[in-house]
């Protein structure tokens, strides 16, 4: 394994590296990238090292009007410990907490989790349920915003163009003091390390009487990309979380499963994945 690397310290340096670079990849926490590069003798590309970048829009977690901006370089550990995220976006906090191990959480970034576009990305799955927006910076200094539902274009593929970098994600906060039912469930083979067999993120807004005002549900490790289970969300809208019938719960779970096209691999069979997904979907009401 060998490669060239350049470590811009600020935004101007980053844009310059992106403009001048012909063939490059970004590196943030390297927990995915190094494993990939170790398999290759030599690489033809340069790495633009984001780890030494000192730019708040990339590194900080800040409240903004209408929600929260999370810099792409925020680590899973920072997300786990963030009080605002813990309070308003439990699904994201739990997803970050379930990722790998404490050592990896310390360096793994939310941007890396999104850009690696693995169907089993934990923070990515939570962000899908939270209906986040991705802020993309291009080499010419312009930014564009893409809803996360349009960010993943296939396994390991995203909408990022050649000269673009993910700068931050925006997580909308519907209403500040809404009651929430929000969380992340992951079923894996060995504790939380390794990829999950299936995962489910849910973020449900309730009114004072526990009626569902808005629901966001996403599934991971069950299809080529993480998916937002729109019809399942629509189905439960207006229902009461506490008194939802067994039939509706099962119908909801079946709708969630309809978004899955799992594979049989070394970790689990497709049948098992669907069963697990059905059961954890139902379990969010219990």
């Amino acid at each position: 394994m060998d490669f060239k690397i350049t470590s811009p310290k600020n935004k101007a340096g980053l844009l310059k590296a992106m403009q001048e670079g012909k063939n490059f990849r970004f590196g943030a926490g390297y927990t995915d990238l190094l494993m990939e590069l170790k398999k290759q003798e030599e690489t033809s590309f340069t790495i633009i090292n984001l780890a030494q970048l000192n730019d708040k829009t990339f590194t900080e977690i800040n409240t903004i009007s209408g929600g929260l901006r999370i810099g792409s370089l925020a680590t899973a550990a920072e997300i786990v410990n963030d009080k605002f995220i813990t309070q308003h976006f439990p699904a994201l906090q739990e997803a970050a907490h379930s990722l790998a191990s404490s050592q990896i959480r310390e360096v793994a970034t939310i941007g890396g989790n999104l850009c690696t576009a693995s169907p089993s990305g934990d923070m990515a799955c939570a962000l899908m349920a939270l209906e986040a927006q991705c802020e993309i910076l291009s080499a010419n200094g312009k930014t564009r915003t893409v809803p996360i539902s349009g960010f993943f274009t296939g396994p390991r593929k995203t909408v990022l163009q050649k000269k673009e970098v993910l700068r931050s994600v925006l997580v909308p906060l519907l209403e500040k003091n809404r009651k929430l039912h929000s969380g992340f469930i992951k079923v894996g083979t060995r504790r939380s390390m390794e990829c999950s067999v299936v995962s489910l993120a849910y973020h449900i807004h309730l009114d004072r009487n526990d009626s569902i005002v808005h629901a966001g549900v996403a599934i991971g490790a069950s299809a080529p990309t993480i998916r937002f289970a729109k019809t399942a969300c629509d189905l439960i809208s207006g229902n009461n979380l506490k008194t939802i019938s067994q039939k509706d719960k099962e119908e909801f779970a079946a709708k969630v499963v309809s978004y899955a096209s799992p594979i049989t691999d070394i970790r689990a069979t497709a049948w098992y994945r669907k069963e697990v997904l059905f059961n954890i979907s139902k379990s969010i009401f219990e």
């Binding site: 390297y30 190094l34 790998a100 191990s101 050592q103 310390e106």
Partner: peptide
Amino acid sequence: GECGACTVLINGSPINSCLFLAIN
């Protein structure tokens, strides 16, 4: 990054030194 035998502290927090670029 699986076994933790290589764990060191960076500014007080544990990381896997086998997955951490020395230049960083």
